[in-house]
């Protein structure tokens, strides 16, 4: 049996760490405990809430899938090639993390707003952004795509490049190497990036509310109920959203967990 010796060092670090954990857990626990059964019961039968949750999950998923399609090749290039301006590209990828999300929403709005070139071009096709699900997905994608690209890039970087080189000399084209070696070896990194991005998309408020107040995503709905009806009304919606998300992420994190015998 292994013995844990409690030194001054480990006690100090444990104490400091538990402050952070308590800081994260306390408000969530308080929120869930404060919601009365009656409130929750009502919320469970609240069609508006459920349709907002469904919209939120769906828009975040669409944002994630589309970003994966475009973002994984970029992540691979960033992991595997050295080109002039690579540092600039890395900076651009991280940009959405740094700018305030309301500002990001405004920026997007100027690009895809009602009188923008893009909106006028897509309108005949029946695609609207402002006040529409496509716009919500775009706002979510804008603020959360760095998480996907960075995680995927780290996944690709972790593959020893000799493995890919060997595959080339054995007769595989770059495309084949990508699909048979790089992608299968990096999928855990990509998947955890997707989970992160999806989570970040679901929780987005600032950019989304500027593009679309309606249809309401759950974060917007929670805000609206708090504004219009007060804390108790917002509380139940928040609890349901948190529980749904926690369940979803637990499942996905379990799938994307690192294998126990990864190293040689």
């Amino acid at each position: 049996m292994r013995k844990y010796r409690l030194s001054l060092f480990s006690i100090t670090f444990l104490l400091l760490g538990s402050v952070v954990l308590a800081f994260i857990i306390a408000p969530l626990a308080r929120l869930i405990l404060a919601a009365s059964n009656q409130e929750l019961g009502q919320a469970l039968h609240d069609a508006e809430l459920w349709s907002s949750i469904w919209l939120t999950l769906r828009a975040a998923a669409a944002a994630t899938l589309a970003s994966t399609f475009f973002g994984v090749p970029l992540a691979y290039l960033l992991a595997r090639t050295r080109f002039p301006g690579r540092a600039v590209v890395l900076g651009i990828v991280d940009l959405p993390i740094m700018i305030p999300h309301s500002a990001a929403g405004i920026a997007l709005l100027t690009l895809i707003g009602r009188h923008s070139v893009i909106q006028r071009a897509t309108e005949p096709l029946g695609i609207n952004f402002v006040g529409a699900e496509a716009g919500i997905a775009l706002a979510m994608a804008f603020v959360s795509v760095p998480f996907l690209i960075n995680a995927a890039r780290e996944g690709f970087t972790a593959i020893p490049d000799r493995i890919e080189k060997v595959a080339r000399t054995l007769g595989a084209s770059r495309t084949r190497v990508f699909f048979t070696i790089s992608l299968p070896m990096a999928w855990r990194g990509i998947l955890s990036g997707m989970v992160l991005m999806w989570a970040r998309g679901i929780s987005e408020f600032g950019a989304v509310v500027i593009i679309a107040y309606h249809p309401m995503t759950t974060p917007v709905l929670v805000f609206q109920r708090f504004n219009d009806y007060g804390l108790a009304s917002a509380r139940a919606a928040a609890v349901i959203l948190i529980l749904v998300c926690a369940a979803g992420f637990s499942i996905l994190r379990f799938i994307a967990r690192p294998a126990r015998t990864e190293s040689l």
């Binding site: 493995i163 080339r168 000399t169 007769g171 299968p184």
Partner: peptide, 20 residues
Amino acid sequence: IPPERRGFAIVYQDYALFPH
């Protein structure tokens, strides 16, 4: 000519086997 069409396979010190 690109490596896949040369057919000179490399064996590296760390073997570089495909772990999956």
